[in-house]
Computed example of a mutant assay.
Amino acid sequence: MNIVSGTKSKAFIIFILAFGVFGIINTEMGIIGILPLIAENFGVSVSTAGLLVSLFALAVAISGSILPLLFSGFNRKGVMLLAIGLFVVSNVVSMFAPNFTIALIARIVPAFLHPVYVSVAFTAAASSVSPEMAPKAIGRVFMGLTAGMIIGTPIASFIAVYANLEIAMLFFAVVNALTFLAILLFVPSLPVKQKQSYGSQVRILKKGVVWAAIFGAIFILSGMYATFSFFAEYLGRVTEMSSNTISLMLILFGLTGMIGNLLAGKLLTNNALKTAFVYPLVFVGSYLVLFLLGSFTVPMILLIAFWGVLFTFGLNISQYMITSSAPEAPDFSNGLFVAFSNLGVTIGTMVSGAFINGMGIQSVMWVGIVFLLLGFLSILLFIPLTRKSNIKDASKLAA
């Protein structure tokens, strides 16, 4: 199914989809930098304010494998408008929330539709181009995810400090409102022409290659977030960077992450299995160097730039493995990616947190290495299962 004809029109619509992902991820992650202000505003502790982040992620993890499946038969434009519209409303409610409970509810409710929008955006981007070019199109949508994760947090913090908390919340609302209008005006109707039964989609869970991909994604994301969740702490305590320098490093990390998206899309398009095979080994090597040179500022700046590239590679590769293992159920498989990647984030962060308490901040690199090696073992299983699956598909077409 092609969204529209014309290369420029397709590129513009993919940009809109990416901007929508930026708005949603910005709403999720941007609030991290203003938690102290939120705690002060509502008269709660910072740990209590942290529920705005943790419960949001939990809602995403719970709904990721369910709601994309339930919405898979509906017009994709309508589904995206519903999800983005709910985020706009929740952002506005958060601005005027009279107490913390209302603010928490306003955060949790739209979080359930987070994986719905993201999975539909990935599916719509992939379906707008040929199957061979799908990884590149998805990589461009991933740029919105990277921008939301990395750039959204310092922007929201800057607005809250130099204006006020309400204006920072307004920033979230404006980004999502612009996306809503762009989808409404410029994205054509996207009906699902071949509606699949829920049973036929769930049936992909019987495939061994799907589970190899799922475990690969869980371990890779665990390895990524085992270190990234403590990025600022590592640079502050090991490299002894100032808070202002760390903020600049986050921006550098985000900018090189966007470059990583483009490179990942190109490499996955040209040679996906080889890219997936090499990736965790390269990342393990980079963690070893980060561990050895962590106290040296100049080498760390260069390593952080490379780290950003590898980080977004992991997101692209994980999404590719899950969706390519079940092309017959794109919405459901994209939902599985969102759900299990969030599970990986939770596992990696929790395990590293436990090791930090017992062995110090530098131990996060070793935790990351262990998870990446487990991801590599999953990829070793994924590759032959994928080739076997491709042979079966080719035989069916030949018959």
Rank of each mutant, 00 (worst) to 15 (best):
K8Q: 15
V21W: 00
F22L: 15
I38M: 12
G43D: 12
G43Y: 10
V44M: 06
A61Q: 03
P68E: 08
S72L: 06
G73Y: 02
G85S: 10
N99M: 10
I108A: 08
A126P: 03
S128M: 07
A137G: 03
I138F: 03
I138E: 01
G144A: 11
G148K: 02
I150C: 13
T153M: 15
A160L: 09
I167W: 08
A168W: 02
V175E: 02
L190F: 06
V202T: 11
K206F: 12
V209E: 08
V210N: 02
F215C: 02
T227M: 13
T239C: 06
M241H: 08
L248H: 12
T256A: 11
I259H: 05
A264D: 05
N271R: 14
K274E: 12
T275D: 05
V278A: 10
S286M: 15
L288E: 09
V289A: 12
F291W: 13
S295L: 06
I304G: 01
F306K: 05
F311S: 07
N316Y: 03
I317D: 03
Y320P: 01
S324W: 00
L343S: 02
V364P: 00
V364L: 04
I369D: 00
S378T: 08
F382S: 04
I383P: 05
K388H: 13
S395T: 12
